[in-house]
Design a protein around this nucleic acid. Structure first.
Lengths: 121, 121
DNA sequence: TGATCATATGATAATATGATCATATATTGT
DNA sequence: ACAATATATGATCATATTATCATATGATCA
């Protein structure tokens, strides 16, 4: 899926603008990068996860802080934290019984800001 | 879902850091904005749709150009174009039998660039 | 008007996802 | 070692999503 097969007749309809298709094909981002980016967006594309990440933009928090802040069950929060961590959006640090979460890096903040600017335009 | 109910005891675990929870609660983006942003990310969080959008970053294209470029069936492309259009990521313009698609606005390009920078870091 | 091309859309089936429940793991203090 | 607390995780169910097929719509031209 998402492979670029320029010149291959893959569509039942003939491409009308072969030059554009060819040019764009050469300019296109490689498929594995597209997939990585899609996975980042998919991770952020859920209200619960995005709320967590936006909260962590403001401060480092432990799991139960997030539960209280977002009115979510501990299990739900942990599951989503795990997904966010696997996608390298957040990272964690254990301190005694508690585990504290923060943004993985400052890039995440830029990404969210750009998106938020668009939404609140 | 995703409502911020600060101070409400919604989690079976007691929040340890009440001050942080309270402060972050006040700083948090309002829920409807979180939801809008999550929907934008969800829309971009699919390989097929993201490929389409990245292609349209390079040039205006008609449906069958996209079919050829991405090796996808016309129906699949049309369905995803429709979702992208409903999310205001792209817009279209009819010219005779063909329908040409472009990015809805320049903001989209910024959003993609920020995300791509992170992925290709 | 009928034929053809380009695109859109409804229905369906396979897969993915998220919340919840129950339970497991890890840490601390007694 | 045991109890208590904080967090993680496996299983399950309900819902959402995607690609595909079949068909419909819209536009052009003979």
């Amino acid at each position: 899926m998402n492979k670029l097969m320029i010149g291959v007749e893959a569509c039942e309809v003939k491409a009308i603008h072969e030059e554009i298709v060819s040019t764009v094909g050469k300019l296109m981002v490689p498929p594995h990068q597209i997939q990585s980016l899609a996975e980042l967006y998919k991770t952020l594309g859920d209200g619960t996860r995005l709320s967590i990440v936006l909260a962590l933009c403001e401060a480092e928090m432990c799991v139960c802080d997030l539960c209280a802040l977002l009115s979510l069950k501990q299990s739900a929060v942990s599951h989503q934290l795990n997904k966010l961590r696997l996608s390298r959006v957040i990272k964690n640090r254990r301190e005694g019984k508690m585990v504290f979460y923060t943004l993985a890096d400052e890039h995440i903040r830029d990404i969210l800001k750009t998106g938020m600017d668009h939404v609140t335009e």
